[in-house]
């Protein structure tokens, strides 16, 4: 069932608590009493239609939800994705790091085993950061440039060159190695690190990793199913304009 604007904001959270960081990114903070989603969005100055589409796309991963998201402006979608980036960088990654540091204090892992996990996570982090900075410095600005040109129906020579040499599809979605590393890290923690006396901290790390994974999947789904098709369409239209 889709989340609708008449629904109470609190009920959406009760349906799936993983929406908590999602609503934060969209500009909604907790403490909304018994107000409906529409009222809360109105009060906190958030576009309710966009809000609903993002939430539904997060919960329901089929193409229909992605299509709805295509109706929204490239700028809005990109600015949402930028907020997911800062959530990863400022919140979730440092939190996982802290917990990995706790792992050695509270377990009988020897120093080398601990360093293996720590280094592996460092590597993962480096790749994730690299990927994020590529998107923030090149891919997203390019998308916004294309969208602006599309709406003003004017194509500069430099942008035309960019489209011809580096169309959006050339930023091949190299999410794959980052996803694979996350997958490996989960299995190392679940299966291959020596059995601890108490699994609590390791459980916490795993839960964070599973949540991060789900969030990253939503993130790449939005890119692959919403932004890339949309920008490709705009690129074609802009080039056609010139002919």
């Amino acid at each position: 069932m889709q989340i609708k604007k008449e629904m109470k904001m609190a009920d959406a959270i009760h349906r799936n608590y993983l929406l908590l960081p999602v609503i934060n990114r969209l500009g909604i903070q907790l403490g909304f009493q018994d107000k409906t989603i529409e009222k809360v969005c109105l009060k906190q100055n958030v576009d309710v239609e966009f809000f609903l589409t993002i939430l539904n796309a997060y919960l329901d991963t089929n193409d229909k939800s992605s299509k709805q998201l295509q109706a929204h402006s490239v700028k809005d979608v990109v600015s949402y994705l930028l907020k997911t980036h800062s959530y990863y960088l400022e919140r979730i990654i440092p939190e996982i790091e802290n917990r990995i540091n706790l792992l050695i204090q509270h377990s009988q892992l020897n120093k080398n085993e601990f360093l293996l996990v720590k280094n592996f996570f460092e590597e993962y982090k480096k790749e994730l950061y690299g990927h994020i900075s590529l998107e923030e410095n090149f891919v997203y600005p390019y998308m916004i440039e294309i969208a602006d040109a599309y709406h003003s129906k004017s194509l500069s020579k430099t942008l035309e060159d960019k489209i011809n040499s580096y169309p959006i599809t050339s930023y091949e979605k190299e999410h794959s190695d980052i996803e694979a590393k996350l997958f490996d890290l989960k299995n190392i923690l679940i299966k291959y690190l020596p059995t601890p006396n108490d699994s609590y901290i390791r459980n916490r790390i795993l839960m964070e990793l599973f949540t991060l994974e789900q969030d990253l999947n939503d993130h790449s789904r939005i890119e692959n199913r919403v932004l890339i098709p949309k920008i490709t369409q705009m690129e074609t239209a802009l080039i056609a304009l010139k002919k």
């Binding site: 080398n112 085993e113 293996l116 996990v117 592996f120 590597e123 190695d177 694979a180 590393k181 997958f183 490996d184 890290l185 299995n187 190392i188 299966k191 291959y192 690190l193 020596p194």
Partner: peptide, 22 residues
Amino acid sequence: KLGIKTVSGLTVYALLNKLIKM
């Protein structure tokens, strides 16, 4: 079999299982 896809993941696996030495 292992559920490990990357080279660095396999390295961690090999070290943990003492297949290779640090």
